[in-house]
Amino acid sequence: MDFMQERCDKITNLLNRRELERKLDIEKKRENKRQGLAEHENIDFFEKTFTAKKLEIENDLNSSLTMDSSKLANHFDMISKNILNLQKYVAASNLFLRTYDIKVCHQSLQELSSKARELEEKVLPKKKFGFKKKTMKSPPKHEDIKLNGHAKDEVDFCRRFINLNDNFCGYENKINETLVLENSKVFKKDVTLKDLECCVIKIYGTPSTIHMNHLKNCLILSGPVSTSIFAENCTNCKLVIACQQLRLHSSSDVHIYLHVTSRAIMEDCKRILIAPYNYKYDGMEDDFIKSGLDINTNNWTSIDDFNWLNTEIQSPNWNILKEIERVNDWNNFSLPSG
């Protein structure tokens, strides 16, 4: 009897649990749907509000042309406040707005501001002599802060010599070399790789940051970098890198095997192909721990192209490197000659 009872209980338990799981699953799906909807509603609502406010400001701007001149100063004060508020509204909505929306809003705001400025200069030329309520708050004008008797900064805009060689860590001006930077040399350092051609650079250990500039036909292999990697003017290179942020500028034909814990951005780049980081060396796990990078968080596909506004369509400037085209073994890899 006892035995039968036990079996029975077990089965009931099992059934109950299944039922619960099923319900939870439905609830979860429903919640997901609701969230998706809310997000959509958010964006809709934002767009409506933004457009309405923008229109309001445009109307105010237009009405300044026919307005009694005594009211103009206050009127423009109000307009600039409204623009400011609209800016704040965009900023507060940053979270759920898509990159594209943000850019569009920026552009609208900029147009509004410059239109306001133009109009203000046109219809209110003697602004300086107008009475303002908040004289205490407005910052002193240029004329009021002639410290040491100078109204303007006397800066000559010629280039100055900056000594780059103190504490230099890295390589520059090399052709056809294979070079290795060891752990102790790079630990917490700012590594520079500059003006290199047909070089293979291996970096073991954890630099704080790496700067790359003017690299041609190079292969760069690096352990985890605690903060950011900043690369510009790289052509026809392979970068196998791990970092917190990647910032790639003015580069083309670069294959990046990437581990990035926040995000990567690119600006003025073409033909960039991305694959997940696949460098392996002894002590790599330890290096990840030392660098503070999470070895399990890799957002290698999270790439923002600053030159590509559209979020619906993939940027033409980068793509994912096809699996069959990826290099898997870096130790036996050699740069194509020529």
Binding site: N94, H106, Q245, S262, G292
Partner: peptide
């Protein structure tokens, strides 16, 4: 601060 991405737009 570990999760900071390069800024697209602005933060307030």
């Amino acid at each position: 601060i570990d999760t900071i991405s390069p800024t697209l737009g602005f933060n307030i």
